[in-house]
Write a protein that binds this DNA or RNA. Structure first.
Length: 261
DNA sequence: TTAATTACCTGAGAGC
DNA sequence: TGCTCTCAGGTAATTA
């Protein structure tokens, strides 16, 4: 499931391969995958950006891609046979095509004339690795929030890019109980949470992301950060204590009740 | 305003 | 072997 580091790996791959390519056509293979006018002349890709978990292709229009759960972008030769989970195809003016492959069909491609027109991107919180994600910002954001801190970390309007795997790992490293109300965190815990968020993101990006089931980068390569996971889908903590598994906001939370307070 | 719940989607695995 | 059920989870929409 692609989160910020995985999307970063895909964007890096796209920057090295598709900038300058002209999009000849963009075709959906099933309904509701593409929102907006895919028939227009999309022109050359001038730039590729990431914002949170969104991939942004700048061409004659702005093409905003979200991989959701199982989405993948694969750059292949035109002659390559497409498997049945390919949901959309970008055809370029050379011998390549970009496949949007997505088993669960949750992912979307939105076409807008201007990035600012796309409301979900406007609402996103700061990027974890930028300076504006800091103690003052985060303390203000959570001062009246009674929901569990894990839910806050998953809230893209508070912080852009985190998903279930990394929130589990960040809270474990920061030794914070994921059930703890956000407004009950002590100053030191908040500082630790911010620094571990930045550390985990940096390490995961350097490792090329996490591959649990099906994440692949543009060339089909897996990430490596799964080797560093300490709680997500684990049975025992490093301390020897059994990992507790609960449901929060409809998703699995893994934590060590001994280390995380 | 905030919080909780549900729909979307399909393959994998468990249980019978 | 084949059927049914449950689970995985990011986001938007709906409800409380």
């Amino acid at each position: 499931m692609p989160e910020l580091p995985e999307v970063e790996a895909v964007v890096n791959g796209l920057q090295n391969t598709v900038i300058g390519k002209k999009i000849v056509s963009l075709k959906a293979k099933r309904p509701k995958i593409i929102v907006g006018d895919a028939e227009q002349d999309l022109g050359k890709i001038r730039n590729v950006l990431r914002r949170g978990k969104y991939i942004i292709l700048e061409a004659n229009a702005i093409i905003i891609i979200h991989l959701r759960m199982t989405g993948k972008l694969l750059l292949v030769d035109r002659k390559v046979k497409e498997r049945k989970y390919v949901r959309a195809v970008f055809l370029f003016d050379d011998d390549k095509k970009l496949l949007f492959d997505d088993v669960r069909a949750f992912g979307t491609i939105v076409i807008k004339q201007d990035q600012q027109e796309y409301f979900p991107i406007q609402k996103l919180g700061p990027e974890p690795l930028l300076k504006n994600f800091n103690f003052d910002y985060f303390a203000k954001k959570i001062e009246n929030r009674k929901v569990p801190i894990k839910n806050i970390l998953l809230d893209q309007t508070v912080l852009a890019g985190l998903g279930n795997i990394y929130t589990n790992e960040i809270l474990h490293r920061a030794q914070i109980d994921p059930r703890k109300s956000a407004n009950k965190l002590k100053k030191k815990q908040l500082q630790k949470l911010i620094s571990e968020t930045k550390n985990v993101m940096k390490e995961a990006i350097a490792a090329g992301g996490t591959t649990i089931s099906d994440f692949r980068d543009l060339s089909g390569k897996s990430g490596n950060f799964q080797k560093k996971l300490e709680v997500y889908q684990k049975k025992y903590c490093r301390c020897g204590n059994k990992i507790t598994r609960i449901k929060q906001a409809g998703r699995s939370t893994f934590f060590c009740a001994k280390c995380q307070k």
